[in-house]
Design a protein around this nucleic acid. Structure first.
Lengths: 181, 181
DNA sequence: TTTTAATGTCAACAACGCTGACGTAAAATT
DNA sequence: AATTTTACGTCAGCGTTGTTGACATTAAAA
């Protein structure tokens, strides 16, 4: 069954209904438009991570390792609990990849000075090398797309994505994202 | 190590560098901007699929089932190979969830009339019900975000996402996306 | 008739989520 | 000082979903 179940003939291509001046054109909110947004997220995300995935598998790592390295890089010295909050996975799941990365010498974990229960995570030089390589793979795609789209489109792109984050975690996520390393 | 390794002091918040009129402002192409795009994709995608995930797990299904149902819904009667091309997974991986969905009566598979080797996939009424419920979960989030952002932002959002799809599969993906069920 | 294409299936494996249970060290609270 | 809570690690087991490799069937194509 289609999404709108319309009985009247549809306009041929209502993809981007131009808003009438001062009007209340809501054609961009049809179920069809929403579905397109979801599908585009699926395809774009799949291909965006594919570049890094190829690099990772040559080292026997997966996406979980990538995410772990990335956010440790972004917030050097962050405790394990903070990383758990960012990734929203269980500590068992995180610990599996974290242990590997520490054993492999990409991340080092040191006891917190203020709170000695904490393990503060940092990248080693090798870890930084890998993060740089992973970023380069994804950035090349992103740069080309951003250049084609232009600054206003990039801004809109970010606004929409930010709106899709759960309200409960949005502020924290945006703070992390906008923080200059 | 930071992404730009700048030695000069950075502007405090170059998040959305306003293009000078007629100028060649490329502040929106800094590594920082690209990184933000990647991170936003991560957070937004994670939370976008979370709604459907919750619904799926009550039925013992996962995302693979969702994707399968979704694209069969979008292209009723499509053969298995076409679905493999869309999802870009192995036939063994697809077949595992496809078998379940057929056994559970959400998808029916019928022998192709022109090519009797093909199995043409269609949703059963039960399958359509589940797809509708899954779409509803995701559409609510998307609708709210689109409404807040406005039609121009939505358009830009889609343009950027489309640009992130691999060139090799972009045309096919966009044709599928823009096709009105 | 031989080859190729479309599909299904079995087996084994890996990445990465999850729950539950248990343990240790250190901080916080009572 | 004793208790509780927090931060972390770990073992065991399980589920989803991806992979490769091998093999079989059916039907279309050459």
């Amino acid at each position: 069954m289609s999404q709108d179940a319309p009985t009247a003939p549809r306009p041929r291509r209502p993809l981007h209904g131009a808003a009438r001046p001062g009007g209340e054109n809501l054609l961009f909110l049809t179920d069809q438009q929403l579905r397109q947004g979801v599908e585009l997220m699926f395809f774009a995300y799949r291909d965006m991570v594919a570049d890094a995935d190829r690099l990772l598998e040559t080292r026997g790592y997966g996406r979980a390792h990538h995410r772990c390295l990335h956010f440790v890089w972004r917030s050097p010295g962050l405790p394990v609990t903070a990383l758990l909050d960012i990734l929203k996975v269980t500590k068992q799941s995180l610990n599996r990849v974290l242990r590997q990365l520490v054993e492999d010498g990409l991340i080092r974990s040191e006891i917190g000075r203020e709170d000695r229960r904490q393990r503060l995570l940092r990248l080693t030089p090798d870890g930084e090398d890998l993060v740089r390589a992973l970023s380069a793979a994804q950035n090349e795609r992103m740069r080309r797309v951003f250049l084609d789209a232009g600054p206003e489109a990039v801004q809109a792109f970010k606004t929409v994505l930010a709106g899709m984050i759960d309200e409960a975690s949005r502020d924290a996520a945006l703070a992390l994202i906008e923080d200059q390393g």
